[in-house]
């Protein structure tokens, strides 16, 4: 299997106070596989993903190589990078409620994006989006497109983002904690859609999460980050069964402890196992 994305010696720092956020990280994503990045908040997961998209805030700088299908993104102009975003590198944000312009209906963003990349007409966009939205189990796609973000739920908006990704057919999908802002039921539904997305499109994916249960379910490989450094990486099975680094063991044990606490509270019912 070839690597669709290779990150080499990525260094990310804040130019305003010279604080290094990610000192030196290298990893790769294989074609069609899902890489999960786990770690506590502030460990540099999100910044790393935004660095791949070259979308960190103005003061944050980065160096190193990011190869997408062999092409070094670091050498691309902003203009050419913009053409890659959305079409080849697609992102799904944590909070669906805040990912869309609050004063426009959701359809406006979808139309603008698809018009930009494919130049389709209005009817074609609506037809394509309708299909994609139905495939992620959204009822009444047309109605959803004509609603404002605040009139929809976080889970629905999350699925709208997934539907847009289905139409865009990116080489790699980056999901930044896509389930964190959702309640358990919506979480389950959204994860279901991610699994189907992988099955159907064979889409490569980077999945950021601190929910190890979900990671175990969806990822092929796992990368554990702590304070900006990659402390361990390997296949999901290896990480979960034989964690090498103390930090990985700590993460797993805290997850286990939480599960046990949960079980005790629920009176021994085995609900928290995933």
């Amino acid at each position: 299997m070839t690597n669709i994305l290779e990150v080499k010696n990525l260094k990310i720092w804040d130019s305003r106070n010279d604080r290094v956020i990610v000192p030196n990280s290298s990893f790769y994503v294989k074609q069609g596989s899902c890489l999960a990045i786990v770690g506590e908040s502030g460990s540099g997961k999100s910044v790393t993903c935004k660095a791949i998209m070259k979308l960190n805030k103005a003061g944050i700088r980065q160096s190193g190589d990011i190869l997408l299908r062999g092409e070094n993104l670091m050498e691309l102009s902003e203009q050419r990078m913009r053409k890659k975003r959305g079409k080849q590198l697609c992102m799904i944000l944590q909070n669906g409620m805040r990912a869309f312009d609050p004063s426009c209906v959701v359809g406006v963003h979808l139309k603008e994006t698809l018009m930009e990349h494919f130049g389709w007409g209005r009817d074609e966009i609506i037809a394509k989006m309708k299909n994609a939205m139905e495939s992620v189990m959204l009822k009444d796609p047309i109605e959803v497109m004509n609603k404002y973000p605040h009139q929809l739920s976080g889970g629905t908006l999350q699925r709208v983002m997934i539907a847009l990704a289905i139409v865009l057919e990116p080489d790699i999908l980056i999901a930044d904690e896509p389930t964190t802002a959702l309640d358990t039921l919506s979480q389950f539904e959204v994860i279901e859609q991610f699994l189907q997305l992988r099955e159907r499109m064979g889409c490569s994916m980077i999945f950021i999460s601190h929910d190890l249960g979900i990671v175990k379910l969806i990822a092929d490989e796992v990368l554990v980050m702590k304070e900006g450094e990659i402390v361990e990486n390997g296949t999901t099975q290896a990480i979960f069964s034989e964690p090498q680094h103390t930090y990985t063991r700590y993460l797993l044990s805290s997850k286990l402890a939480m599960n046990q606490h949960f079980k005790r509270v629920m009176g021994g019912v085995n609900v928290a196992e995933r």
């Binding site: 975003r85 959305g86 909070n95 963003h109 930009e116």
Partner: peptide, 12 residues
Amino acid sequence: DYVLYARACGLP
């Protein structure tokens, strides 16, 4: 976030 998402979708 909506600005970040718009950029991530490649809008000009």
